[in-house]
Design a protein around this nucleic acid. Structure first.
Length: 260
DNA sequence: ATGTCGTGGACGCCACGA
């Protein structure tokens, strides 16, 4: 099974690129974030035409998550149980069982600045995610948490750690909240570094992509049963190139059949 | 470290979020 995650920064704006990518990468399951589309306008039919069933949770201008699958989508759940709001709950989590894997598509709050209330919201959100992950692991169904975590797990996951002192995405509380999730027994898959950089996100501004000024903030967290099945993990850096790209690249994992 | 995006409201630009 090929499983991928991609923050598309507006699905309506990115449909040509997404359809293109589905055709070339042929993922079995694709988690999307920042779809920025209301459920009533979600392009289910167009994706069905490309061979993918889809489920979504979005309310328009901001946020929005979805899961696309060609290996089934069952037991869909929207939102993060007991998650915080800002002030109301936002569309940042959807889960479904696809091909025997419990897949979560997650868009963790940005945090904005270390002294911003949004950072506390982010930490509360991660704590609620940890409790959801704990409950999911207890079911025994293979679990994959996929998405834009808005956290660079280690210093090597940003282009220059010195530039990030005092910023979100690298702070001790954020990294510690992520470590607490991993401590439940999940592995942060390390993608093959293409062109020597492990990044998944490059700001649109300043030609950052071409200068290699990126971050690894899009993560695949797998439980041990899935981690044992991994045959490859990579970032599709080419998807960040060309006309009207997202500012994120897809992260892809290939899983051998269970017991293979 | 920002020179860019995407969205939507009231426009032919601005505010906001990232």
């Amino acid at each position: 099974m090929r499983l991928a995650t991609w923050n598309v920064n507006s699905l309506p704006a990115r449909m040509p690129r997404v359809l293109d990518w589905l055709g070339s990468a042929e993922p079995d399951v694709l988690c999307l974030q920042e779809t920025k589309v209301a459920d009533s306008a979600f392009p289910h039919a167009e994706l069905e035409g490309a061979g993918y069933a889809s489920v979504a949770d979005g309310d328009g201008r901001w946020n929005g998550v979805a899961i696309l699958s060609r290996v089934g989508i069952e037991d869909v759940s929207r939102g993060l149980p007991d998650g915080p709001g800002f002030p109301e709950p936002e569309r940042r989590a959807i889960a479904a069982t696809c091909g025997g894997v419990r897949v979560w598509s997650l868009y963790i709050p940005n945090g904005r600045a270390l002294d911003d209330p949004h950072l506390q919201y982010k930490l509360q959100w991660l704590a609620a995610l940890r409790e959801s992950a704990r409950a999911e692991l207890a079911t025994g169904v293979p679990l994959a948490l996929c998405g834009d975590f808005n956290i660079a797990p280690a210093d090597r996951d940003v282009w220059d750690p010195a530039q990030f002192v005092g910023s979100t995405h690298v702070s001790a509380p954020e990294r510690s909240a992520l470590r607490e999730i991993l401590a439940l027994g999940l592995t942060d898959l390390q993608p093959r570094a293409l062109k020597g950089e492990p990044f998944t996100y490059w700001d649109y501004r300043g030609g950052n992509f071409h200068k290699g000024l990126g971050m690894r903030i899009d993560l695949l967290l797998l439980d041990p049963s899935l981690e044992r099945r991994v045959t490859d993990v990579y970032i599709d850096r080419d998807a960040r190139k060309g006309s009207k790209p997202s500012d994120h690249a897809p992260v892809v994992v290939d899983l051998a059949e269970p017991g293979a």
